[in-house]
Nucleic acid binder design. Structure first.
Length: 215
DNA sequence: ACCCAGGTGTTTC
DNA sequence: GAAACACATGGG
């Protein structure tokens, strides 16, 4: 199956997702870090805590101490390391770009990606989520669901992060809105439990194509 | 009780 | 290199 066809099937079966659910680019970054291996509902609680204490801003996160920040983001899990990650990226943006995200995002994409990946706590998925959903760059995000889906639909043979990303980008129009919606739809599709390691595919919309159903 | 969540970093073979 | 492990709360 071609990626374009997969996108069409997802769009036919689900509502448009209109990600990212955040009010500012900085909030996208905070959410991207908090949601690492964590359900979005927990991230919402953590962000609500930050907002209630007025500690969400780039400045506030630099000023608050690590333990206090950890307490506020506790619902999102891994709060000790995530507190460090948040403070580190806030400090980086402050020191290198005067706290001006737009200035950073105006840089060349390759440089921007390299800088992001150089930060502690920013791996490939978080990096590309920030590039796509905050910086609005045409970068396809690969997550565990995308990987499983690609494998089960036998979309392509190589499944490591970079090969998979290249596969989608080469086989789709280079379009921020398309990449945005595609990734969001895959995550939404996962709610049907068919993209888990031990899938239940009763409601799967991909019955005819899914590797697990075919068998 | 068990599995999982919009992963990442470190350690170990 | 690639597995294996730690990180941690909370929902189903």
């Amino acid at each position: 199956m071609q990626p374009k066809k997969l996108f069409e099937i997802l769009l036919e079966n689900y509502e448009q997702q209109y990600w990212w659910p955040a009010k500012s680019n900085w909030e996208v970054i905070v959410g991207a870090i908090l949601t690492q291996n964590t359900s979005w509902i927990q991230v919402e609680k953590a962000i609500a805590n930050l907002k209630a204490k007025r500690k969400l801003s780039l400045n506030a996160i630099q000023e608050i101490n690590e333990q206090e920040l950890g307490e506020l983001i506790k619902p999102a899990g891994y709060f000790n390391q995530k507190a460090v990650y948040l403070k580190e990226i806030a400090k980086y943006i402050q020191e290198n770009y005067s706290g001006d995200l737009d200035k950073w995002f105006a840089k060349d994409l390759i440089d921007l990606r390299t800088e992001l990946l150089g930060l502690k706590g920013i791996g490939p998925e978080t990096c590309d989520s920030i590039l796509l959903y905050a910086a609005k760059k045409p970068v396809f995000v690969i997550d565990a669901y995308t990987k499983r889906l690609s494998e089960r639909l036998d979309l392509t043979d190589k499944l490591d992060y970079n090969d998979l990303q290249e596969f989608f980008q080469l086989n789709l129009k280079k379009n921020v809105q398309l990449y945005n919606e595609f990734h969001a739809l895959i995550v939404n599709h996962a709610k049907n439990y068919c993209l888990k390691e031990n899938p239940k595919c009763e409601k799967c919309i991909l019955k005819k194509e899914c590797f697990f159903i075919k068998k």
